Simulated assay, not measured.
Amino acid sequence: MSVGTVYGVGLGPGDPDLMSVRADRLLRRAKHVAFFRKAGRPGQARRIVEGMLPEDRVEFPMEYPVTTEIPLTDPRYNEILSRFYAECTAHLRGLAQAGEDVVVLCEGDPFFYGSFMHLYTRLKDDTPVEVVPAITGMSGAWTATGAPVTWGDDILTVLMGTLDEDTLAARMGAADAIVVMKIGRNIEKVRRALRRAGKYDAAHLIEFATMPNQSVQLLSDAEDKVTPYFSIIVVHGQGRRP
Results as ranks from 00 to 15, higher is better:
residue 143 T to L: 08
residue 143 T to E: 08
residue 143 T to V: 14
residue 144 A to R: 09
residue 144 A to T: 07
residue 144 A to W: 09
residue 144 A to H: 07
residue 145 T to S: 03
residue 145 T to C: 14
residue 145 T to A: 04
residue 145 T to N: 03
residue 146 G to H: 10
residue 146 G to F: 11
residue 146 G to W: 10
residue 147 A to M: 07
residue 147 A to L: 12
residue 147 A to G: 01
residue 147 A to P: 00
residue 147 A to H: 12
residue 147 A to C: 08
residue 148 P to L: 04
residue 148 P to A: 03
residue 148 P to V: 02
residue 148 P to Q: 03
residue 148 P to E: 01
residue 148 P to D: 05
residue 149 V to T: 09
residue 149 V to N: 00
residue 149 V to R: 01
residue 149 V to K: 01
residue 149 V to W: 03
residue 149 V to L: 15
residue 150 T to A: 11
residue 151 W to K: 06
residue 151 W to Y: 12
residue 151 W to G: 01
residue 152 G to F: 11
residue 152 G to K: 09
residue 152 G to H: 11
residue 153 D to K: 12
residue 153 D to V: 02
residue 154 D to H: 06
residue 154 D to M: 10
residue 154 D to L: 08
residue 154 D to G: 09
residue 154 D to E: 08
residue 155 I to T: 13
residue 155 I to Y: 05
residue 155 I to L: 11
residue 155 I to R: 13
residue 156 L to Q: 09
residue 156 L to Y: 07
residue 156 L to E: 08
residue 156 L to D: 05
residue 156 L to P: 06
residue 157 T to S: 13
residue 157 T to W: 02
residue 157 T to E: 15
residue 157 T to V: 15
residue 157 T to Q: 14
residue 158 V to H: 05
residue 158 V to L: 15
residue 158 V to I: 15
residue 158 V to N: 04
residue 159 L to S: 06
residue 159 L to V: 12
residue 159 L to D: 03
residue 159 L to Q: 09
residue 159 L to G: 03
residue 159 L to T: 10
residue 159 L to A: 08
residue 160 M to L: 15
residue 160 M to V: 13
residue 160 M to C: 14
residue 160 M to H: 09
residue 160 M to E: 14
residue 160 M to R: 13
residue 160 M to A: 15
residue 160 M to P: 15
residue 161 G to I: 12
residue 162 T to H: 02
residue 162 T to W: 02
residue 162 T to L: 12
residue 162 T to E: 01
residue 162 T to R: 00
residue 162 T to P: 01
residue 163 L to P: 01
residue 163 L to T: 04
residue 163 L to D: 05
residue 163 L to R: 14
residue 163 L to F: 10
residue 163 L to W: 06
residue 163 L to E: 08
residue 164 D to R: 04
residue 164 D to Y: 00
residue 164 D to E: 15
residue 164 D to H: 08
residue 165 E to Q: 14
residue 165 E to K: 13
residue 165 E to R: 12
residue 165 E to C: 09
residue 165 E to I: 13
residue 166 D to E: 15
residue 166 D to R: 12
residue 166 D to I: 06
residue 166 D to V: 11
residue 166 D to W: 03
residue 166 D to A: 15
residue 166 D to Q: 15
residue 167 T to C: 14
residue 167 T to Y: 13
residue 167 T to W: 09
residue 167 T to Q: 15
residue 168 L to A: 02
residue 168 L to S: 01
residue 168 L to C: 04
residue 168 L to K: 00
residue 168 L to W: 01
residue 169 A to C: 08
residue 169 A to F: 00
residue 170 A to W: 05
residue 170 A to P: 04
residue 170 A to G: 05
residue 170 A to F: 05
residue 170 A to C: 05
residue 170 A to K: 12
residue 171 R to A: 13
residue 171 R to C: 11
residue 171 R to I: 06
residue 172 M to V: 05
residue 172 M to Q: 03
residue 172 M to K: 00
residue 172 M to E: 03
residue 173 G to A: 14
residue 173 G to F: 06
residue 173 G to Q: 09
residue 174 A to R: 14
residue 174 A to L: 11
residue 174 A to P: 05
residue 174 A to T: 08
residue 174 A to C: 07
residue 174 A to G: 12
residue 174 A to N: 09
residue 175 A to G: 07
residue 175 A to C: 10
residue 176 D to Q: 09
residue 176 D to Y: 11
